[in-house]
Computed example of a mutant assay.
Amino acid sequence: MGTGLVTAVSSNGVYSFTKPTRESITLLEGLGVEGDVHAGVTVKHRSRVAQDPTQPNLRQVHLIHRELFDELAEQGFEVSAGQLGENVTTEGVDLLGLPTGAVLRFGEEAVVEVTGLRNPCLQIDAFQQGLLKQVVGRDASGRLLRKAGIMGVVRHGGTIRPGDAISVTLPPEPHVPLERV
């Protein structure tokens, strides 16, 4: 289905909205990003832990397409890699158009299975006032659009660096559109 490129990688060992960029990150199979606060078998996002700390962590890796930053810049917002809390910033892959179960291979080793859409929260407006309505909207038919990236789980560990190629493998038909996870 084509290829893309990793433009930045980010992680943070403490709860914070933004994540500093790194020279590389290491994905751990079934866990997420090594040393990242959201890594684990069970859910780590605080709002989800409050609901049910035993639910599986379908949000081990957060990916955002760099093209979103260009779109936001046109609306007067300055956003760069890691500032929306993503672990991997991509280019050339229609992340939001992927179906559930799509598989992303980064470089030679790391493999992430797409689980769903990131559900943007009010912290985005605390980061930059008015940004939330830029990453959440409605299409012409009134359907809710979430544009703040996608989430996935690590199926095979490995190191990811800026410049790594991304290849996409789609699951068998019928494809299931991404939903909030």
Rank of each mutant, 00 (worst) to 15 (best):
G130K: 09
A102S: 14
D139E: 09
R66T: 07
L144S: 13
T3A: 14
V9N: 10
H65K: 13
E23V: 14
F17N: 13
L95V: 02
V41R: 13
S141H: 11
R59Y: 00
R66V: 01
T26Y: 00
V61D: 00
K147G: 05
E179A: 15
V49A: 12
N12Q: 13
A126L: 13
V43P: 03
E86H: 06
T54W: 11
G158E: 07
I64K: 09
Q129W: 06
Q55A: 14
V135L: 01
G157H: 12
G35N: 12
A110D: 09
P56W: 00
P162T: 14
V114C: 09
I25T: 09
R180I: 12
G142I: 08
A148Y: 04
T18A: 13
F17T: 15
E67V: 06
E74K: 06
Y15Q: 15
R180A: 14
G92C: 06
G85H: 08
R118H: 06
G85Q: 06
G116K: 01
G157E: 10
L145E: 14
L27K: 14
V14D: 11
Q75V: 07
Q75P: 01
A81R: 02
E86N: 08
G101M: 08
I25D: 04
H62T: 03
G97P: 02
V114Y: 03
R180V: 14
P56F: 00
A73D: 04
P99S: 06
V103R: 15
G97V: 00
V112W: 10
D94V: 02
G97T: 06
V168E: 02
I150N: 03
A102H: 05
Q55G: 12
E78L: 01
V136R: 13
Q129P: 12
L31V: 13
G116R: 00
L28A: 11
D36S: 04
D52G: 11
S167P: 04
P162Y: 09
L170R: 12
T90F: 07
R138Y: 07
T90Q: 09
E34C: 07
T89Q: 04
E113I: 11
E74I: 01
G152M: 00
L95G: 05
T115P: 01
G163H: 07
L95C: 02
H62S: 09
E179P: 03
T42M: 10
T26E: 13
P20S: 04
S11M: 12
E74H: 04
L98K: 05
K133V: 15
E29R: 15
R118Y: 01
V88L: 08
D70M: 03
E179T: 12
D70W: 03
G82F: 06
Y15H: 15
M151T: 00
R118S: 05
V33A: 05
A165E: 15
E67I: 04
H45R: 06
A140P: 04
P162A: 14
V37H: 03
L170C: 07
R105M: 12
L98Y: 00
V93L: 05
H156R: 15
R146E: 10
P56G: 07
V9F: 10
G158Q: 10
S10D: 03
E173D: 10
V88F: 04
H45K: 08
L98A: 02
G97A: 02
E29D: 08
A50K: 15
Y15V: 14
L145K: 13
